[in-house]
Design a protein around this nucleic acid. Structure first.
Lengths: 338, 338
DNA sequence: TTGAAAGCGCTAACAG
DNA sequence: CTGTTAGCGCTTTCAA
């Protein structure tokens, strides 16, 4: 509380430091940037003055003069709710000497645009984007200007950028075969809407699996919004029809949770393999068998691609597909009722 | 892929736009900032030039000249792992016309300092901080300079700033009374280390509850690191001693999860009330009864305090305590064995 | 209503 | 090794 009321003191600038130390502006700049060609005596004087005045460099001015900012923008859907990739992005970026500046797109296209535009305006060293929607043409100008951009989780539409995605088809295939191995013939899929890239890919892969198995697909595929009523209806169709499913594949973590919630108030005990792992999946009874994305590798790969693009903006654009794993915990190994 | 190889085109500046439109620099600036005192004809010419060149203002230069940045920094422990407050911070900030720039402190003091210093250097409009460690004296200079800072979840040590915290003592009290009401006499606490503020507050509140109840406290209070071995040992002491506990209060979400995990491989079925709610708490059997923090109100309050501080940097510093709630789901209503 | 010129705080050429 | 001098791209006095 001390002196909050005193006249807002102006922050000292490099000039103030130079005067205080009795040296030229340039010398202060050299000391601040650890230029080795400064005499020990001068370094000392400047350091003392900096400490005395409490000087901190103004990043805005510094960068205006055209240095790298050391900042990578991460435009992600949500900041909080289980964004495992963001933490590995952050860790990997740190190892490359970058700081991650995260902003949420709230899964809205307009918001994404605002966020990314604001990042451009700040001249960050690069941008990692979890694209929302289908059209990212608005990025093409910056792309041409050489701004490094990497997309992850879903591709950016209408532009060609380095991209990191999970092997969704392989994941669905693995889940399907796992359930078949455990004796299931009627397997249903409940997942996200197909206007979302991952929802589309996973539903398509599932349809291909069913077709290859020779089963009739009727009543088995349920893409759509993740909301209680829709999920309840999908479950009813899948589990109570004339040729009911004995096993489920859920298309993402939200779908899994909604399905489990609904099943909790039901007698039905289908086998379940969920797409996406989540922290508490092993506390359930039985534990939830999942297809786990390798979020750590996704994050690291995104940063690697960005670093390469920063180093050479002419290198060929690359799409990297990251493998997924099956984590067996019990829910996917329940046999079908005889 | 089109033309990635072409010579990196320089981004157009305001001067380029002015030349292209055949007007003065100042006029372009006026148009960009929606200054109404510009002739319609000029506005048109400038707008056309902007579109033709794909001009975007350079925020760095803009802010260097001393405007508000519209950015609020959020220095939080982790970006991903269940940070509910961050999302409400983001939402509330947006309503105030701010964008949240989130950076992770990784719960390391040095890292926090780096992050916050970098935020200062960027001259953000304010900073919301989840403090790490005990000493935040290094902030006092900026504080005196009038930079608005708000702490949440834990107080910042050694400085006086607006603060938002949950009513930890009330939460523990509620949990304790709830378990007593359900017949428990021996209630144990397993929580975070006491060098952490919330760990300290909750353990202290728990001790006070036990003392008030007249029970002996021996073997009941277990603060410390959240790691399997320590939790296992604590559980053993609490549940298998000469006067065993029949109910548990866990000090935070990590502790709860570790406790549940351990109990899963055990015959013991104590009643449990966890501090902190988490997404899947209601999928467990029985559902987990928790003390839930009001993260939404915490986030909104932090932004409100920041806004007020921005509007008037002389106003008295304020600490706001946010109430917590009891969510009954089953685990906390188990009776003690007779 | 529009324009010319002076900086914001800093780094980068170029001299001394 | 150190100092002087231009700007970076923009906003802002102050004139026209």
């Amino acid at each position: 509380m001390a002196d909050r009321a005193q006249p807002r003191r102006k922050r000292p600038t490099m000039i103030d430091v130079a005067q205080h130390a009795g040296v030229a502006l340039r010398t202060v700049s050299r000391v601040v940037n650890n230029d080795p060609t400064v005499g020990a005596e001068f370094v000392n004087r400047v350091r003392t003055a900096i400490a005395a005045l409490g000087y901190t460099p103004d990043e805005r001015a510094r960068q205006l003069r055209g240095r790298r900012s050391g900042l990578i923008g991460a435009a992600v859907r949500n900041l909080p709710a289980g964004h495992p990739v963001l933490s590995s992005l952050d860790a990997a970026a740190r190892e490359h000497g970058f700081t991650v500046l995260a902003m949420a797109t709230a899964d809205e296209e307009d918001r994404e645009r605002e966020v990314v535009t604001s990042m451009f305006g700040r001249h960050l060293d690069g941008i990692v984007l979890e694209p929302v929607g289908e059209n990212h043409q608005y990025l093409s100008r910056e792309l041409d200007a050489g701004v490094p951009i990497v997309a992850f989780d879903r591709p950016a539409g209408g532009i060609t950028v380095d991209t990191v995605i999970s092997d969704n088809a392989a994941g669905i295939g693995t889940a399907f075969r796992h359930l078949r191995t455990h004796g299931h013939r009627r397997i249903a899929y409940i997942g996200d809407a197909e206007r979302i890239f991952t929802g589309r890919e996973r539903a398509a892969a599932f349809r291909a699996c069913v077709a290859a198995s020779g089963e009739s697909i009727t009543g088995l595929v349920h893409p759509g919004l993740i909301e209680p009523a829709r999920i309840a209806a999908a479950l009813e169709t899948a589990l109570l029809g004339p040729s009911p499913a004995t096993a489920l594949i859920t298309g993402n973590a939200s779908a899994t949770i909604e399905v489990l919630r609904h099943l909790g108030s039901t007698a039905a005990k289908p086998a379940i393999v969920g797409f996406d792992d989540f922290p508490l999946a092993n506390l359930l009874h039985p534990g939830l068998t999942v297809i786990a994305q390798d979020s750590d590798t996704i994050g690291r790969t995104a940063i690697d691609l960005l670093q390469h693009r920063i180093d050479d903006h002419t290198r060929p654009v690359q799409t990297v597909t990251i493998g997924v794993g099956l984590v067996v915990r019990g829910s996917g190994e329940r046999p079908p009722p005889d």
